[in-house]
Amino acid sequence: MTTGSPHPAPGGAPDAAPGGAAGGDEVDLIVAAWRREAPQLDVEPLEVLSRVARLARHLDRLRRDAFAAHELETWEFDVLAALRRAGSPHELSPGQLLVETLVASGTMTNRVDRLAGRGLVERRPDPADRRSVRVRLTAAGSAVVDAALADLVEAEHRMLDVLGREERRALATLLRRVSAPFER
């Protein structure tokens, strides 16, 4: 027994899960098994959060593939994207990069070193404090992050094509409400 949606897929055919559950997916099979094996537990959160976790794994793979096509690792894209989003002159302090990418100070120093070695960023003296530096996106860094972002957005659009515009907006609103307490 599954707990999947009775709604048919576009075209009138019922959805089929990889595990063979008509009208459901793998999570429906997992939830049904837990309800059978541990009926004393309310496993309803699994119906949402197991899907979020599975989608996160698919999204990680999709992103790695999009970035690999531009010879970038995910962490490299994260740093370059933070600089690109900063607006002209596309530079941030190492401390600002820490906040933007959620990594430790030693990790960021290593990442900036590696990106500078590839010519994607450069360190510049901070005009407000000569003892400090700013990390600036180079023209090469800007070109590669822009191209990787274009490919990523295209792939993410394909991933969400199963939803209409209003469904995507509603999902974004719901996910924002769930994730807001964990944000900085």
Rank of each mutant, 00 (worst) to 15 (best):
L149T: 08
V135D: 08
L41P: 01
E100S: 06
V52H: 02
E91V: 06
R165D: 12
L102F: 11
T74V: 15
D129T: 01
M108L: 10
V103H: 12
A128S: 15
D161R: 11
R165Y: 07
L149V: 10
L49C: 08
A148G: 06
R134E: 09
D28F: 01
L137D: 10
G141L: 08
G106Y: 10
V135A: 01
H70R: 10
L137T: 12
R51K: 10
R36D: 09
P45Y: 03
V112P: 05
R54A: 09
L49A: 15
V31R: 03
E166T: 13
L115A: 11
P18Q: 12
G117T: 01
H157M: 09
G19N: 13
D60N: 04
A86Y: 02
H90S: 13
F67R: 05
G141P: 05
E100F: 00
L115I: 03
E44S: 15
L72T: 09
A143S: 04
M159L: 13
A81W: 15
D78A: 03
D129E: 03
A56Y: 06
R35G: 09
E154L: 05
Q40E: 14
L97Y: 14
V133P: 03
A33D: 07
E44F: 08
R54S: 05
A53G: 08
R57G: 04
A81M: 08
G117S: 02
R85C: 06
G119R: 02
S142D: 15
V121T: 04
I30G: 00
S105R: 15
S105I: 10
L120M: 11
D151H: 12
R114Q: 10
R36E: 09
R63M: 02
R134N: 11
E100H: 05
E44N: 13
V145Q: 00
E154Q: 12
D25S: 02
A104M: 07
L115P: 00
V144E: 14
H70K: 07
P45C: 03
H70Y: 08
R35I: 06
P45W: 00
P89C: 05
T109R: 13
V27Y: 06
L137G: 12
R63E: 06
D60G: 02
E154F: 07
V31W: 11
A104C: 15
